[in-house]
């Protein structure tokens, strides 16, 4: 029984990785730009579709598609930030929500127009369709790959924020936007860069999902809701919070299916509510003065 439960946890952690990639970008963008990007789930969806399109165009090479797809999503992020979002930074939060929600609708319909309303199901790359025995059960190689990819992204983001000059500027701007600007940080370029990075992360999540999940319009709405829960739970703007929050929601989901199947959907929200009662700023968030 113990081994079965450990295995169940491991499976939950792989599901958490997709969530982490979306939540990381969402949290990063909020931390720096102070915009709650409703369209982040749509970017995840676009990432899946563009990667699939590249996959088909390049004769079914998943690895090429995985490199190209998320970069295309980052470029869409550039268009969104430079031509649209930039105009509403000073506006009321309601305008930001309206604008990003408009992107959800536009991108959803665009996908329906181009790829059709019906789901697509690309094949799993042969090199990753094996399985490895862990805790007495076969865990798909692809799931191990997802765990590694999610972990690498976490490590990469940490190194970037802590060890590079750009990372320092990002942290400074997130901590005190006015002060950073006064000290000469060119915030408009920084904002564009951060938004593109966030879009790339969501696109990567979508791209990684296509070999095992089916893709369909509206797939972004499912994940954005969970990503919001993660970000609120972990603390808005905190990457560490997004990481721990994703793992927590992934495990809750996976153990919920075993122990509380009737209640599994509500579980994540209950935990979020409980955390918010005790720490309204989230597990790793910073208390607003």
């Amino acid at each position: 029984m113990g081994r079965v439960l450990l295995f169940q946890g491991l499976v939950g952690l792989t599901e958490a990785m997709y969530l982490w990639l979306v939540a990381a970008g969402l949290s990063l963008i909020f931390g720096v730009l102070r915009v709650l990007n409703f369209a982040h789930g749509a970017l995840y969806m676009i990432g899946a579709y563009l990667t699939y399109a590249v996959f088909r165009a390049f004769g079914g090479n998943f690895w090429v598609a995985l490199l190209v797809g998320p970069v295309l999503v980052a470029l869409i992020g550039w268009v969104m930030e430079v031509f649209f979002l930039r105009r509403v930074y000073r506006a009321d939060v309601a305008f930001q929500l309206l604008l990003t929600f408009a992107f959800v609708l536009i991108l959803d319909d665009l996908v329906k127009l181009v790829f059709g309303p019906v789901y697509q199901s690309p094949p799993t790359p042969r090199s990753l369709s094996g399985a490895v025995m862990i805790f007495g059960s076969p865990l798909p190689t692809y799931h191990l790959f997802i765990l590694a990819a999610g972990g690498l992204v976490a490590l990469g983001l940490w190194l970037f924020l802590e060890k590079t000059r750009w990372g320092l500027l990002v942290r400074a701007t997130a901590a005190d936007r006015e002060m950073a600007r006064a000290l000469g940080v060119r915030s408009s370029r920084l904002f564009t860069g951060v938004f593109m990075l966030g879009a790339w992360l969501a696109g990567l999540g979508g791209a990684l999902s296509i070999p095992v999940r089916s893709i369909s319009p509206g797939m972004g709405e499912l994940i954005i809701i969970e990503a919001f829960v993660v970000v609120v739970l972990g603390g808005l703007g905190s990457l560490r919070g997004a990481f721990i929050g994703s793992l927590a929601i992934g495990l809750l989901h996976s153990y919920g299916i075993v122990f509380l199947p009737v209640f599994e959907l509500a579980l994540a929200y209950l935990v979020m509510a409980a955390v918010l009662v005790v720490r309204p700023w989230g597990l790793f968030g910073v208390r607003e003065a």
Partner: peptide
């Protein structure tokens, strides 16, 4: 039993195979 709209059956599969 998987909710409508389930995209990842991994946890359901590992539970049942357990």
């Amino acid at each position: 039993f998987a909710k409508f709209g389930t995209v990842d059956f991994s946890s359901h599969i590992s539970k049942v195979m357990g």
